[in-house]
């Protein structure tokens, strides 16, 4: 069987199947994505909910109509597709929750958000689903800033203990309304799944392949009736915000990463400024957001 080799999140990955979202690469793989039989359950899960189970260095996700996924030791993902599964469906969940579990096992800090590079520094936009992270990142990329990650943001502490954002892969995931808002031609894009009006925007031309120091985090909040405003998150509230915006905090906790996670978010809180941008998505235009963000990120650089 032909194998595919890629690089994503700083890892060389060998896969049994084609993953067009990732960048092809040559080298010695450290992560292996394989077809295979997935065990029905974990022996001693620390956390077991409706469709996932997690234990130290083990993770299981079962999705009817798509696949079963098993992740172990930060180096192996086994995929058992359902009979009528489409590859697109499998990849959407592989690149979401499943990869997040792998990165957590690798002891990366995984935050929920999209990040870009501004003058060599990493800026992360986080916030809950639908808060506009990807749309804003995409709009900034159109203005020439480089993309680091979309959706899952992997962070590692460097040898001096400072957080660095590791580039993910050069794609952005956007709903149809955002694609249209950005003025992209929808006909030239492929939906992430045939059943959804959500698309992958290619960002290969504006993708940063190098890790950069993380310097700023913005939390996007969509709140009914709110004016567009920006406020600094006080140091005492930073840890709470970092926990809230940790991707699938529960997986990580169950996979034995809790104390490590705390060290990581403390290191981030030490050097990263955090601000909250609140607005009502119905009242604030993307242009207004862009103007505010560009002003903001340029002051980050001046400081």
């Amino acid at each position: 069987m032909d194998k595919y080799v890629y690089k994503a999140y700083g890892l060389i990955i060998e896969s049994d199947f084609f993953i067009p979202e990732f960048i092809e690469f040559q080298g010695q793989p450290v992560v292996f994505i394989k077809y295979g039989e997935v065990k029905p359950f974990l022996e001693n899960p620390d956390e077991k909910r409706i469709r996932f189970e997690a234990a130290k260095d083990e993770f299981l996700l079962k999705l009817e109509g798509v696949a079963k996924f098993y992740v172990a030791n930060g180096n192996e993902i086994i995929v058992e597709p359902d009979v009528d599964a489409e590859m697109d469906d499998i990849r959407v969940f592989l690149l979401g929750s499943v990869f997040a579990a792998l990165l957590q096992q690798k002891q990366y800090l995984v935050l929920h958000g999209s990040s870009i590079v501004v003058n060599g520094k990493g800026i992360l936009f986080t916030g809950s689903s639908g808060s506009g992270k990807s749309t804003l990142a995409a709009a900034l990329c159109k203005k020439g800033y480089k993309l680091l990650t979309d959706d899952l943001c992997a962070i590692k502490l460097n040898e001096t203990g400072k957080p660095e954002i590791i580039p993910g892969f050069p794609k952005l995931k956007l709903w149809k309304d955002s694609v249209l808002l950005l003025g992209e031609n929808i006909d030239s894009l492929t939906p992430i799944r045939s059943k959804l009006q959500k698309y992958r925007l290619d960002a290969a031309a504006v993708f940063s392949q190098d890790s950069v120091p993380m310097s700023k985090m913005y939390i996007l909040c969509d709140q009914s009736n709110s004016e567009l405003m920006i406020e600094t998150v006080q140091s005492t509230d930073k840890l709470k915000e970092l926990i809230t915006n940790t991707y699938r905090y529960r997986f990580m906790k169950a996979q034995g990463g809790r104390s490590h996670h705390f060290k990581q978010i403390a290191a981030v809180a030490n050097v990263v400024d955090i601000s909250k941008i609140t607005r009502d998505k119905k009242l604030t235009t993307l242009e207004q957001m862009l103007t505010l963000c560009e002003e903001e990120i340029n002051t980050v650089w001046e400081r």
């Binding site: 469709r51 996932f52 929750s97 997986f251």
Partner: peptide
């Protein structure tokens, strides 16, 4: 958010019928 927490899946990548089934 409750749904995503309980299932471990990003409901925004699911169809509305898939969500209802869970």
């Amino acid at each position: 958010i409750l749904f995503d927490e309980m299932t471990g899946i990003d409901s925004e990548d699911m169809t509305m019928d898939e969500i209802d089934a869970l």
